[in-house]
Deep mutational scan, measured.
Amino acid sequence: MATGGRRGAAAAPLLVAVAALLLGAAGHLYPGEVCPGMDIRNNLTRLHELENCSVIEGHLQILLMFKTRPEDFRDLSFPKLIMITDYLLLFRVYGLESLKDLFPNLTVIRGSRLFFNYALVIFEMVHLKELGLYNLMNITRGSVRIEKNNELCYLATIDWSRILDSVEDNYIVLNKDDNEECGDICPGTAKGKTNCPATVINGQFVERCWTHSHCQKVCPTICKSHGCTAEGLCCHSECLGNCSQPDDPTKCVACRNFYLDGRCVETCPPPYYHFQDWRCVNFSFCQDLHHKCKNSRRQGCHQYVIHNNKCIPECPSGYTMNSSNLLCTPCLGPCPKVCHLLEGEKTIDSVTSAQELRGCTVINGSLIINIRGGNNLAAELEANLGLIEEISGYLKIRRSYALVSLSFFRKLRLIRGETLEIGNYSFYALDNQNLRQLWDWSKHNLTITQGKLFFHYNPKLCLSEIHKMEEVSGTKGRQERNDIALKTNGDQASCENELLKFSYIRTSFDKI
């Protein structure tokens, strides 16, 4: 039985969820670079991206490699990797027998973001014989899940209580170790020597080791999670996991709180800001991140802002960003909400898709409305799209047979046209069989910064309504002859009103 693990408890099935942008060198404390989270699957090609990484700022997932063999891993080693800020997950990587050479110096898994409450997941690794993470000293947050690894031993010899604050939620089941077939031998045991430290858990006094050649490092209890030197002297209180010299914040392997210019500090002093819960960055760093993602459509890219001495992905609820200094300031009234469309555009074809934009005031991208039916549609669209004030790209209304009016965009005031449909149009209306009105132009103002209007096959939309939009939106004169079809717009509506004058002759039985 794995020490510190839980057996036999019912657990939810383990679901495996399925960018080499360097964020800056980590400095003297770390020998390499800070790398983003990685999802490495199918083959070993991307694994080489770990070569210079000291910190993975995010998670590391290595999974679904069915053609790899043990010899493929023999020359692979990433000794610079010290810390993973989120979680480490391995799933069905064939041929991998140990992690001792792959990650010989991995010391800390912070667990800032977890995989279903777990910071370390080893699942269905069919050839893994031992973990071998002999320098792993601290899992700051989260638990361990090690399950269905039929060859995995050296679990009962690990004292997880020396690595985690609590072992109650560890789930370590259905491994070879369960069948008591392992016969784990710690260093020196074969020669009758006791080389590794022994600890007591559940009444068992057991030597602690990761492999037959690597003991588990056990520091004096007084050192807590700070770690200790090879001689057993406690590291500085700002260290986490390990250090090369005692009581020196510049000799830590990793930091308990924050890293700044080669030393570990309790908090980031001005003019620095907390970033990702582990390091200090200056304003320029946060500003660069903001600008890199301002026009990016890459998933996970955030326009970072500053709030409460932190550089964070977005302002919290009730705050909006001051564009001059990136500071989050309290909103006066309802907060603006910028919604970034991942692929640059979004099609609204149902109430469900409209709900995804609920509360958005600025759309960074283009909207395509293609709704053919739905219950209580006008009210639903207004509830979900009615706060949109600005669209950076274009607005396209296409084959939306259920629409009679666009009044559900009740606050839309600006279409920038930074991206144009077919390279020309910022407003595009095609084949809307029941569209009769755009907006009530006596109450609604709309500016279209650039781009043209396109109207074709809107049989109940009168040309007068379209011409009014040209005047109000500032697009009059931009359109070419064929942009607004004269014969297919309003051709099934009563669009022309003329005053009919009647004269009559009164007659009676005795007068003409």
Rank of each mutant, 00 (worst) to 15 (best):
G37F: 06
I40G: 00
N42S: 12
N43F: 08
R46Q: 10
L50M: 11
H59M: 12
Q61M: 09
M65H: 10
K67A: 07
R69F: 05
F73I: 11
K80G: 14
K80E: 06
K80H: 11
I82Y: 15
I84M: 02
T85A: 12
T85S: 08
P104K: 02
R110S: 12
G111V: 00
A119P: 00
K129T: 09
E130T: 09
L131N: 02
G132N: 14
L133P: 01
N135L: 03
L136C: 03
L136D: 00
I139R: 00
T140K: 08
R141N: 02
K148I: 01
L152S: 02
L152G: 01
L152W: 00
L152Y: 00
I163G: 00
I163F: 11
D169H: 11
D169S: 12
Y171P: 03
V173T: 01
D177T: 03
E180W: 11
G183V: 14
G188C: 06
T189A: 08
K191S: 13
N195S: 13
N195G: 07
N195M: 09
T199W: 09
Q204T: 04
V206G: 09
C209A: 02
T211L: 03
S213G: 07
C215A: 02
Q216C: 00
Q216P: 01
K224A: 13
S225C: 11
S225D: 07
H226R: 10
H226L: 09
C228S: 02
L233Q: 09
C234N: 00
C235D: 01
E238P: 01
E238L: 08
G241Q: 02
S244P: 04
Q245A: 11
P246R: 13
D248E: 05
N257T: 07
F258S: 07
Y273R: 05
F275P: 01
W278L: 11
C280F: 01
V281D: 00
F283M: 09
F283A: 02
S284H: 13
H290L: 06
C293L: 11
K294M: 04
R297Y: 11
C301Q: 14
Q303M: 12
Y304G: 04
V305P: 04
C311F: 03
C311S: 01
S317K: 14
S317R: 15
M321Y: 04
L327E: 12
P336K: 15
P336Y: 13
